[in-house]
Amino acid sequence: MNDKKLKVKDFITVGIFTAILFVVEFACGMLGFFHPYIVASYVIMIPLVGCIPMMLFYTKVEKFGMITIMSVLMAIIMFVTGMGYLGAPLIIGAGVLADLIAMSGKYKSFKKTVLSNGVFSLWICANYFPVVITAKSYREGLLESGYSQEYCDNLFRAINFKTIGVLLILCFVFGCVGAFLGKAVVKKHFEKAGIV
């Protein structure tokens, strides 16, 4: 059966949605310069905003590999834009796992999609990895590059080894909530228009 294999159309779909997701991430990321607590709140903001393209993406996914490729692309883009390579294993891991979960529901089951979106949302936490793992040198780097002491203190109060667990859970929860929201939006707009 050739149906199981990914075709050019699928690759292009993946590319487009990755680009959109990155734009969402970037737009939210810009807000982070205002206050470090906003950096921590990415776990809520990005899943909720990004859920709409993601759910539309899920309606187009029918074969294994699409979500995985998306996560690989995200990892590459994160690296190129200077977020580092520390988060890459998490991003790709989350992508593969999300793909497997969605596949177990044959990409049709809504429950599995919710779970899968929750898992995929974990990639956002990869942004924090440099902060958590290389905390000391990262802090020095920030201070040297001119961030104020206050910003650093707040950043590290919000994101450290203790809170990363909470942040991961929040990511997952809001990924799931976002799936419902996204589903509603997709239903409201796209199913009516007959695009899905």
């Binding site: 292009i12 993946v14 590319g15």
Partner: peptide, 18 residues
Amino acid sequence: PDGITISLAVVMRFFPTI
């Protein structure tokens, strides 16, 4: 692999379009 190449090419091409 082709999958990565094509998708990445689309991403690169797509930012101006967005």
